[in-house]
Design a protein around this nucleic acid. Structure first.
Lengths: 336, 336
DNA sequence: CTGAAAGCGCTAACAG
DNA sequence: CTGTTAGCGCTTTCAG
């Protein structure tokens, strides 16, 4: 079934005017007489005319849409970021197109290709946990395509970035666990290649150091897919149990809930006295039977800022070469 | 900043061929000699050529994209549906464009307009809790635009629909609460205008009837925005507490967690012995300190089926007039 | 087998 | 103030 819309031509024919006059009238051009405008607008209104944005995009080489790539939308943090993005995009009349990588770099690349070829004007992206090579993003950027990174950012990439102070957040969390009297603090984290993994590990180490606790590499467990697959977590926890630990700092939403699931199933953790602190933007942690100290990120805010920066890039008259990285604070939510 | 892609013209010029030959070669047309094809394909590969889908859309009057409208993506059920949609769309080479209503009918209408004018080939939609008038959707459908409803469906609308057996799910949940020995079973539910609200209320009533328990209208509390605003829930619960109840059947994800939040804050519920059963697709209910019996919907499956039906509609050669409503089963997950 | 030309719906010089 | 024309990138008759 094909669904036909009215075109500018239909209006032109009906009113005995040229298409250009219609086009101009609809866009409220100064060159059109008030009377003509009135007639055109009324008729357009009557038939409920909508300009075809596809045609307009082709002509203007601007689609008024931006792409956003995240690993999962079924993730509190990312869905909140998306809401922030939406709030700005909506105001500025940009359509947003959401795409998921499911932590696959292959998928990420395909998505980027698809979105760019599909004519998005710019891209917001948080890298997948699997991603290592982003040369294609560099190329894109070199060719003038606007990209803004958020949350999971690449090491070297000269563009706007928006992150939270992951190191500080991790420091605060670890410090909190230590204050509670714990000494053997495990760290369950995501893929080694992610910026957030590195920064949070750094904060964790610093907190240990500040408290004269030796850093034990075997207490740090990486999970390549950030908790997307439960068996990854299960394995990590089993290893940790072997070693023994009295508190754990977890570096992500899915990892935190994954940890709770596994320990519950194994009847471990809830039973014992393990203190848990984790990065999570879940709004139901307070309801959990295990006490979880949450490090919360201003996700909505991040989405807003990233979008503002992206639109600034898109609408820049001249190439921008000076870029800032916006660093937002995290919040430690203790539950006692 | 404008970002330029290679076009068919560039290839034509480089290879001294016509654009039509390039176009045909790229689409593997039988009219092109194997040698020419090879040359073209290799060159295209080399410069990493991507056809401009905007231009193609304009020509073919098909955008190969579908819209999906939900109330919130930060909702377990909907994000799982979206994943189902994505799984099919990805295979069939359709782009999906997600849009949120935040339970506003105004927003819903604007989104539909935007998406259709933006050239989507079809629409998947779960109505907002505020929506009453959908005449504009009827008009769209009359003009041949493919629409498939899921989850929150309109009363009369001749098209494909995908739902779960809400009545049965509600019946099972209520029955479960009764089996536990409860008699005064409250029902916290969403907006009156939603199909799911009506169906679930019906199932609740039937279960009461089957157990010779009188239906008490004042034990049913509606929440216009389905738990999006916590104060709505707070008010409802306060009223219920006045009346007194020993179990509660809750008709939605946000309502369920909202209920838990409020009762926790009020120090009510968790303390007392209220049994809770609720529709939710959360994968963390097991971690809650309150025991919650979950009625789970096959969300991913729903997304898949709805998308298949939509694509069937889109690709139909002749108008389809016979429509089915697919009804999927719910699953009762008891946590004891 | 290949090319020229028209056209999808819209915008924007350029003329008048 | 309005119309003519060309063109965005691609597909597709129609000719050769």
């Amino acid at each position: 079934m094909k669904f036909e819309n009215y075109t500018i031509k239909d209006i032109a024919k009906a009113l005995n005017l040229s298409t250009s006059t219609i086009s101009r009238a609809l866009r409220d051009s100064y060159e059109i007489s008030p009377e003509t405008k009135k007639v055109v607008l009324e008729y357009a209104e009557k038939i409920n005319y909508r300009a075809n944005p596809i045609a307009r995009s082709l002509k203007e080489r601007r689609s008024h849409s931006i792409g956003i790539i995240v690993s999962e939308i079924a993730n509190n943090f990312f869905s909140q970021v998306i809401n922030g993005v939406e709030s700005i995009a909506y105001d500025k009349n940009f359509q947003i197109i959401i795409s998921q990588t499911h932590e696959s770099s292959e998928r990420e690349r395909l998505n980027v290709e698809y979105l760019t070829s599909r004519g998005i004007d710019g891209l917001l992206i948080a890298l997948s946990s699997e991603t290592e090579d982003i040369s294609y993003l560099h190329q894109l950027k070199e060719r003038g395509f606007p990209i803004v990174f958020f949350d999971r950012i690449p090491k070297q990439f000269n563009t706007y970035k928006v992150v939270v102070n992951n190191q500080q957040g991790a420091y605060d969390a670890t410090q909190h666990l230590i204050k509670l009297g714990n000494k053997k603090i495990a760290h369950l984290t995501s893929s080694k290649s992610l910026s957030i993994t590195r920064d949070r590990l750094e904060g964790y180490k610093k907190a240990l150091l500040a408290n004269h606790i030796d850093f034990a590499p075997n207490l740090v467990k990486y999970s390549q897919y950030g908790g997307l697959h439960l068996d990854e977590i299960e394995k990590a926890i089993e290893e940790l149990i072997q070693i023994g630990f009295d508190a754990i700092f977890i570096s992500g939403d899915k990892l935190t809930t994954g940890y709770l699931h596994v320990t519950k199933k194994r009847n471990f953790g809830a039973a014992s006295n393990i203190a848990i602190a984790g990065f999570t933007n879940s709004n139901v942690v307070e309801l959990f039977s295990s006490k979880v100290t949450a490090i919360r990120q201003p996700a909505f805010e991040m989405g807003k800022i990233a979008t503002e920066l992206l639109i600034k890039l898109i609408e820049a008259k001249y190439p921008i070469t000076e870029f800032e990285t916006r660093v937002l604070p995290t919040e430690l939510i203790t539950n006692d």
